[in-house]
Every structure is written in structure tokens, then in C-alpha cells.
């Protein structure tokens, strides 16, 4: 055994070194994430089911259409009927928290990556690593650093779900047509204006596709993260597995699928129309708006 490269041991040593020396940092992160996640959870789980369902249906109607709004009503009422509404709301909270954190880190990282070759090569390699590493493996350091519960669940999910946000932000910026970037420069943009007024708005469809992907990956990971006590629907799925309870497994699994479809369609709609503000369905409203003075 001594002749082997003991890479696992080195990582273990690194983790315990960090635990010994950066405990206060981890505690601070844990406090922030717990506060953030807790607040979202408190609102979503605390709100009456009809209110939350009404809100999601309203967004579906606004962003996607009548047909999908009907589907959303049916799906969410079915979940409530099964008796898994609280768990679903909790999972929704976890997914939103993890997605927001992923974007908070991922989008700026993607921008940096698009603008700097060295950063690009480092981040790209790291992302490849992160995406191919089996999802369960993230749970171990998460537990080591943050114990059991919501915080390690969310952070493991953030790590797992971030790559698409980074990649698609970077890709979106790199794919802005050269002449549009030239136009920005030719009219006198300095670097920040070029980013915020030219590159980011033009990359928005791609960034929104990244948001969609990130959210879907967060949902899949948050179910797995129930193994370390993240809570929500994942707990029910886990119970179904442990008891070999087909009925419970199916009900909880179905709830995850329905939630996934609703979230997927809504975030996709933001990607589609990101380059064109105001859905055409509401174009008639323009008639009622005051005409700007000539």
C-alpha cells in the first residue's frame, strides 16, 4: 500500500488542516447561509398554500401561457392533495436559496472567465472536475465543514449546481457578435459600460439558460442532500427508500417531478424572451402608455 499514490489521504489532510485553521470562516459562512436559507424557508413554508400556489400560477400565466397555468394549478393542487405541500415548499426554498447563491458566485465568475484567458483555463478545468465528480462525494466535505442539516445541504448543492451558470455566462459573453462589441467601443464605452451596456444584455439569453440549468441541477442535488439532513421532499424520498415503501416513494418522486416541470418551464420562458422585453401578448398595453414627448 505504501507504493500507491495516496491522493485521498492528502485531500483528507487538507480538509482537516482547513478545519483546524479556518473554523471561524466556516462558522461565518454557515451563519450567513443558514440565515438566508432560513428566511426563504420561513416565508415559503409559513405562507398559506393557496397563496403560494396562486403566486406560482400567476407567474406561469404571465410568463408561459394559459395552458401551462392550468397544468400548474393541477400539479400543485395534486401535491397538496397528496399531503406533501410543506415538504415541497421547503424544497422550493432550498432550491431557490442554492440557485441564488450559485448565481451570486457563478455569474461574476463567468464574466471574469470570459475576459481573462488564465482565469478561463483554471476555471474550465475546475468546472470539468466538479461536473464529473459523483454528486454524493460533495456531501462528505460539506458534512466535515458544516456538520449535518440545511447549511451543508445547500452548500453541496451550490457546488454541484454552479457550473452551468459559470459556463453559460462565459459562453454568452464570448458569443456576443464582434461587431456589436465594436459598436460599443466605437461609441465610446469604457470597460465597465462595455460589460453592463453591451456584453451582459446581449448575453442574457445564454445567462438565463444557465439559470434554468442551475435550478434543475439544484433540484436534483437537493433531493440527494437530504442524506445529510437538508430536509424537504428529499427526506420523504429517503424514507421511501429506507422502508421500501413504493407508495411513499412514488408520491414524493412525483412531487419532485411536478415541481421540476413547473420551475423548468418558468425559468425557460425568461431565457426565451430575455432579449425582447415585454411579451408580445401584452403588446396591446403599449397603446395605453403615454407617448414620449418628441
Amino acid at each position: 500500500m505504501d507504493s500507491e499514490i495516496r491522493i485521498g489521504k492528502w485531500v483528507e489532510d487538507l480538509v482537516s488542516f482547513m478545519l483546524d485553521h479556518f473554523q471561524s470562516t466556516f462558522d461565518a459562512i454557515a451563519t450567513v447561509v443558514n440565515g438566508f436559507g432560513g428566511a426563504i424557508d420561513y416565508v415559503l413554508v409559513g405562507a398559506p398554500a393557496w397563496l403560494l400556489i396562486g403566486l406560482i400560477v400567476a407567474i406561469s400565466l404571465w410568463r408561459v401561457g394559459v395552458g401551462f397555468a392550468v397544468f400548474t394549478v393541477a400539479a400543485l393542487v395534486l401535491i397538496a392533495g397528496i399531503g406533501l405541500w410543506t415538504e415541497t415548499a421547503s424544497t422550493l426554498g432550498l432550491v431557490l436559496t442554492a440557485t441564488l447563491l450559485s448565481l451570486l458566485v457563478g455569474v461574476p465568475l463567468g464574466v471574469w472567465m470570459a475576459r481573462n484567458r488564465v482565469v478561463e483555463s483554471i476555471v474550465r478545468t475546475t468546472l470539468d472536475f466538479m461536473q464529473t465528480m459523483p454528486a454524493f462525494v460533495y456531501l462528505i466535505p460539506a458534512v466535515m465543514f458544516f456538520g449535518l442539516g440545511r447549511v451543508p445541504g445547500i452548500l453541496a448543492t451550490v457546488i454541484f449546481a454552479m457550473p452551468p451558470a459559470v459556463r453559460l455566462t462565459s459562453l454568452g459573453i464570448q458569443q456576443v457578435p464582434a461587431e456589436i462589441v465594436e459598436a460599443g467601443k466605437a461609441f465610446g464605452c469604457h470597460d465597465r459600460q462595455l460589460l453592463f451596456k453591451v456584453q451582459l444584455p446581449n448575453a442574457l439569453p445564454s445567462i438565463m439558460a444557465g439559470v434554468n440549468q442551475t435550478m434543475m441541477m439544484a433540484l436534483s442535488m437537493i433531493v440527494i442532500a437530504s442524506m445529510i439532513g437538508a430536509g424537504g421532499l428529499g427526506n420523504v424520498v429517503l424514507q421511501g427508500i429506507q422502508r421500501l415503501d413504493i407508495a411513499l416513494g412514488f408520491e414524493s418522486g412525483l412531487s419532485v417531478v411536478l415541481l421540476a416541470i413547473v420551475l423548468d418551464r418558468i425559468t425557460q420562458s425568461f431565457g426565451r424572451t430575455a432579449s425582447a422585453p415585454g411579451p408580445a401578448r401584452f403588446a396591446f398595453l403599449r397603446r395605453f402608455l403615454p407617448v414620449p414627448a418628441r
Binding site: 457578435p177 461587431e179 456589436i180 465594436e182 459598436a183 467601443k185 466605437a186 461609441f187 465610446g188 451596456k197 453591451v198 444584455p201 446581449n202 442574457l204 430575455a274 432579449s275 425582447a276 422585453p277
Partner: peptide, 17 residues
């Protein structure tokens, strides 16, 4: 560039948003 120059591009290069 801001004060003295204007440019027109082959592909129009308008901001789609």
C-alpha cells in the same frame, strides 16, 4: 470617440434589447 466619431457597421450591430 464619443464627441467626434460615429460608426456604421455592415451587420448593423444594433443592441437587440
Amino acid at each position: 470617440r464619443r464627441r467626434n466619431m460615429g460608426m456604421v457597421f455592415q451587420s448593423f450591430a444594433l443592441m437587440p434589447h
